[in-house]
Amino acid sequence: MAKAFLIDTTVCTGCRGCQIACKQWKKLPAAKTENRGTYQNPEDLSHTTYKLVRMNEAEIDGKLRWLFFPDQCRHCLEPPCLETAGEPKAIYRHRATGAVLYTPVTRDIDTEAVIESCPYNIPRKAPDGRLVKCDLCIDRVSHGLLPACVQTCPTGAMKFGEEKDIRTWARARLAEVRHKFPKAVLVNPDKVRVLYLTAFDPTRYWEYAIAEHREIPLTRATALRRMAQPVRDFFAAIL
């Protein structure tokens, strides 16, 4: 059954347990960082950081807010990266869960185009040329465990489960949250499996929090592939 996340930023305390749990499960090394005048560290996602709590101080309607945004791959329903790559050996969708997965074959595709195609600015290139990002802890999930980040979250800001349940839950939670935060939204709920609930305009949290924020350039190759897709689907179906 397809899976989904709900990341409810209204109860995220920015403790970064998720960020560290991700590194721990994936055995990703720590970067040598400096304090750059903010708690947010590392500065950005990287080939060794798949999950990053972005932190932003903002005055909204005369009140100071410290906005936390645990950023990660959204596992799009129609992933532009997958489409751009056009190579199922490099980027494919995990049938059971819907996870969008990258393989070492990403070395052999146009990585820049894939990176450019992501409206959420997620994929990163490793020194060996591979593209990397969150894989929904597919190894854990396939064995009935929760993703490491969800498992560790102390406040329940992160939920993971059957897509249908999560979507229902997300809508109910949004209605609840709107009593306190009337401008609360679910971010691109129809496009992604990782639903973010934000109390305010998502761009106050992070420039790439929402897809509408940027035009996604359509490469010629992608456009051609899109035209050919129905034919491929037809053959896939009869084979």
Binding site: R16, Q19, I20, K23, Q24, P29, A30, A31, K32, T33, E34, N35, Y39, N41, P42
Partner: peptide, 12 residues
């Protein structure tokens, strides 16, 4: 612990 030091590397 490198992962923790990565998030808060310096006295501030």
């Amino acid at each position: 612990q490198p992962w923790l030091l990565e998030t808060q590397p310096q006295m501030f």
